[in-house]
Amino acid sequence: MTDALQVKGLRKSYGKKEVLKGVDLCIRKGDIFALLGVNGAGKTTMLECIEGLRRYDSGSIAISGRMGIQLQSASLPAYIKGIEAVRLFAKWNKATVNTSMLVSLGVNDLSGKQYREMSTGQKRRLHLALALISDPDIVFLDEPTAGLDVEGRISLHEYIRTLKAQGKTILLASHDMAEVESLCDSIAILKDGQIAFEGTVNELTEAVGKHYNICIKTSQGTETFEADNIGDSLISILKGYQEKSVDIHDIQVDRGSLEQHFVKIARGSRE
């Protein structure tokens, strides 16, 4: 198996409500993959089924290698110290504590701190360290940077890239599109229990059409335009300014953010 994860025909219902309607998904080894979807799309259910934390009705899930899981909703006993939690899970998984990993995540600073005294960001880093303790091949990260400050976020992004460089596969669930755009090799958008899109960020841009945002700064102020055909539109806009004898100071053209494309697919509307 060259893929880190293969999901075929995954179905899951809660009573009469079908949450996953035969989902197929494939993640290449060594990729950082993002699973996106609006609230209620079935992301958490799908992740929990893959992680083995929830039963599914039908379909198959094949995972190559060991898993490390950082859940969004996980906790530890209030009075446990950081280093004790690390040692407990390391001993249970017969793993050696990777000191450099703890240092990279800043968990070594939390060694003597009890869980109840930790901030949200510190708890999140500790749970990530616990997920990595058995040196997993595929790492599941559910909202890994939620609650982190800017510095923590940047350092975690760097660490995720380090994990990728080590050959690990990462499945990321995040609402932070900037994070997904900067980190991920490929993405999947889950909509109404099915994969509405799977591919790279560039492929998503192609899939939603060549939609451009044009921002022009002139002597009279800043104006923005939306266009599907960049060539014709830009010429037409510039001609308009020329006819009015308006000085142009700056022109910026972008193809829309991942967030805009995501919304377009996930909600089925153009924003």
Binding site: S73, A74, P77, F89, H127
Partner: peptide, 21 residues
């Protein structure tokens, strides 16, 4: 209750520790 009626049990399950532990 602190273990089984909170997210502590999620941490156990996610890190391969049997819940009966």
């Amino acid at each position: 209750a602190e273990i089984y009626r909170s997210d502590v049990k999620n941490a156990y399950q996610a890190n391969g520790v049997p819940l009966s532990f």
